[in-house]
């Protein structure tokens, strides 16, 4: 009797992991999906926040993919553990603050822990040789195997034929002849295979699977680190980097200014953690102040905040400033002029 072999598949929500999973399902292996939530994943967050996007259908692509494939999906919160990966990546960062190689090694290691706890046999990923500059090069693929500890229990069905044989192949749990030899940045073979499987709709993440590959996001993250005594972060910190305009007029503080009603509403949730202000005399956005501020700083912050409200051309705008104890006072200021907002304040 052949034992039913079981594999866990790293599901990102993109096409490659979807194809890799399907290839192994076709071979009669029981597959379940696993998805890691680092806090930086590209999810429906900004949609959930911004009012204008609220009407659009939102979905979690990893869940959607699992449902298309008819497999279970385990979503694992790795926010805490991921800090070490992001703060001290052994292999450094990619083009932006994305520590892709360490990140992949970490995720495969977590998956390897999972299969040992759940009595699964091997791990699959949608990696393709030469597809990504950092984590998916021929010379870095063994690094992931080695550093994750998964060794030859890690199978990449889309490019397995270009790589040394792994345990599932040697043991005959999967047929190497029915695996693929995709390589390089071209997406054509993946699209053809998708066609063959009848996958008509799939997500195509541009840069990568998370915000860390995004330049604007990375800039805000680096700015935050540079101006704090420690690089440690909380989930709230990294969420707030996705919301609003961020302006740093002085090294000791920055402002987070809601761009529309949905963002104002979202930022309201942080009123107990941040000094904040909103315009009383004119409609205007909610503004959080992040940092230690003097009375002079507060005045500057208020003048900037006034600039972003409908009283921007008024002589005077009244704003209500509320501190962490919930005590409020009114400030009357003249809004800064457009040309007084320095371009380099924008983070």
């Amino acid at each position: 009797m052949n034992k039913q072999r079981k594999a866990i598949s790293l599901i990102s929500g993109g096409l490659d992991s979807m194809l890799a999973t399907r290839v192994i399902l076709e071979q009669g292996v029981h597959v379940e999906g696993i998805n890691f939530f680092t806090g930086f994943c590209v999810e429906g967050h900004t949609h959930a926040i911004r009012k204008k996007d609220r009407k659009k259908p939102k979905r979690n692509n990893a869940l959607w993919v699992a449902e298309q494939l008819g497999i279970k999906l385990h979503i694992v919160d790795v926010i805490e553990e991921y800090k070490e990966v992001l703060l001290n990546p052994k292999h450094g960062y990619g083009q932006n603050m994305n520590p892709c190689l360490d990140c992949k090694g970490f995720m495969v290691r977590k998956a390897y822990e999972w299969i040992r706890q759940h009595d699964f046999d091997f791990i699959i990923t949608g990696e393709v040789v030469g597809q990504r500059p950092m984590s998916q090069r021929r010379d870095t693929m063994p690094v992931i195997q080695r550093e994750s500890g998964a060794g030859d229990r890690l199978l990449r069905p889309l490019c397995a034929r270009l790589l040394p044989e792994t345990l599932p192949e040697r043991e005959g749990w999967v047929d190497r002849g029915k695996l693929y030899d995709f390589s390089g940045r071209t997406r054509k073979p993946q699209m053809a295979l998708a066609e063959q499987f009848g996958f008509r709709e799939y997500a195509t993440p541009a840069g990568g699977c998370c915000f860390l590959t995004d330049k604007a996001y990375s800039d805000k993250l680096v700015d935050m680190w540079r101006h704090r005594p420690s690089r440690d972060y909380q989930l709230d910190d990294i969420m707030l980097l996705k919301v609003g305009r961020h302006l740093r007029p002085r090294p000791n503080f920055k402002l987070i200014i809601a761009r529309e009603e949905g963002e104002s509403k979202f930022l309201e949730g942080y009123r107990k953690q941040y000094l904040h202000m909103h315009s009383r005399s004119h409609p205007g956005p909610l503004v959080l102040i992040d940092g230690d501020v003097s009375e002079n700083d507060i005045e500057l912050a208020a003048r900037i905040a006034a600039r972003f409200g409908q009283g921007r051309e008024a002589k005077e705008v009244a704003l209500e400033l509320t501190d962490l104890q919930g005590e409020s006072r009114t400030l009357r200021v003249s809004p800064l002029k457009q040309e007084e907002i320095a371009a380099e304040w924008y983070v």
Binding site: F37, C41, H45, I49, K58, L63, I75, D77, G269
Partner: peptide, 12 residues
């Protein structure tokens, strides 16, 4: 006040 996928993870 937590954003997806955290509510899903907590429910799971």
């Amino acid at each position: 006040r937590i954003l997806c996928p955290l509510p899903v993870i907590r429910a799971q």
